[in-house]
Amino acid sequence: MNVIIGGSGFIGTRLSVLLSLSKKPFQIIDKSPSDFFPEKVLSADIRLPLSISFSMEPSALINLAAEHRDDIRPLSLYDEVNVDGARNVCDLAREKGINKIIFTSSVAVYGFAPLGANESAVIAPFNDYGRTKWEAEKIYKDWQAEDPVRRTLVIIRPTVVFGEGNRGNVFNLLRQIASGKFLMVGSGLNRKSMAYVENVAAFLEYSLEFKPGVHIFNYIDKPDFTMNALVAHVNKLLNRSADVKFRLPSSIGLLIGSCFDLIARITDKKYPISAIRVKKFCANSVYESAVDSTGFIPPVPLIEAIEKTVRFEFMEDHKAEKVFYSE
């Protein structure tokens, strides 16, 4: 049986669907209920020791639980969930004799990485999210090193994950384009690596077959679009002109973001605009991956994934369906 920690969330729900379709037994551990698999959920908080009784003997722990937004307060939550949570997952594995852990880390461990950064790129996180993901990776590696002949550790570092029902950064971008009021900050020549949720979930399922050892993969769906090309394609899907109507120099965008940061500190409120979000929007974030070497083939091409998401969110009526909030 496979245990999905954080399985009530966006990626966890897609993975649960795949495991259900392939008749692979699974259990969810989450502090939140699952709208899709309520009967599979064992309620627990990863920040606390995981004293769990399973109906079947677990064969793998898949940890998807994380604090990942840019505006988390208090900042200690990053360490409590991402780092202390990793220790608790490893303790659970030791207690139950589980020899396989799959951990979703993030390309945030590389920080503002050079173009084409692969799995051997320099680790240089610029925020608490990336730092705590890296700290968690080291904890899992120590666990695997305790019994390297029998234990399997898979670390998957996705780039930004998007898909139907997600309310993260990609959705916010698509919504702005769909509104007809999209404002391009910077030249739009910067490229972005993205990952479609169904493909990420499929690779998680695929990695259940990996043998003992440490396996580290970035996860990216290719090709990488420039912001200009992505906006043009979405506009075409919506039967609009492909041209970007409004542009703003990146320096002015950063100034506006900094003003919102100041207002947020004064008012103790969260705003959708911040300096770090503007900086991330204008930056290149292009990664390479060794996933191809495993023989895995993503089930959904990236261009089709974008089209499916745009149709679902802005051309069809799915207002009554569950949505997931993330970065």
Rank of each mutant, 00 (worst) to 15 (best):
F225E: 02
G213D: 09
A145E: 13
K181E: 15
V170Q: 02
W143T: 09
W134Y: 15
G168R: 01
D142H: 11
I139A: 09
R191V: 11
E198L: 14
R191G: 11
I139L: 14
L153T: 08
R131C: 03
I220P: 02
V200W: 00
S179D: 05
V200F: 07
Y129G: 07
F203L: 13
V200D: 05
A136K: 02
K211E: 14
V154P: 00
T159I: 07
N172V: 00
S179C: 04
K222Y: 14
D147V: 06
K181F: 11
D142P: 00
I155F: 01
K192A: 12
E164F: 05
V197T: 14
K141V: 07
S193W: 10
V160R: 05
Y140E: 01
F203Q: 10
Q144E: 12
G180M: 02
P212H: 13
H215L: 07
H215E: 04
Y206W: 14
I156W: 03
L174Q: 03
E209A: 15
F210H: 07
T159Y: 04
K181D: 15
I156C: 06
F217Y: 15
R191Y: 12
R131V: 11
S207P: 00
L174W: 04
Y129P: 06
A178I: 02
I216R: 09
G165Q: 02
R131P: 03
S187H: 08
R151M: 04
L173S: 06
I216Y: 05
I155E: 04
V214Y: 02
A202H: 08
I155N: 05
K133G: 02
L208G: 12
V214C: 12
N190D: 12
Q176N: 13
N172W: 06
N190W: 06
A136H: 05
R175E: 13
K133D: 04
K138L: 15
R175N: 13
A136V: 08
V154C: 08
G163L: 06
Y206A: 14
L208P: 01
E137S: 08
M227V: 09
I155K: 03
D224A: 11
D221T: 03
R150Q: 13
V185K: 03
A202R: 06
I156M: 03
A195N: 08
V185N: 04
V197R: 07
Y206K: 15
K211M: 10
E209W: 07
P223T: 11
I155P: 01
I216L: 14
Y206S: 13
E209S: 15
V200T: 12
V197G: 10
A178D: 03
E146P: 05
K211H: 13
G130S: 10
F210C: 11
F203H: 08
Y206P: 01
N169R: 00
L153S: 06
Y206T: 11
V200H: 04
K222I: 08
K211T: 15
I155C: 00
A202Y: 03
E137P: 06
I220N: 01
G186T: 09
R131K: 15
N169I: 05
V200G: 09
T132H: 09
G188V: 10
A136P: 00
N190K: 10
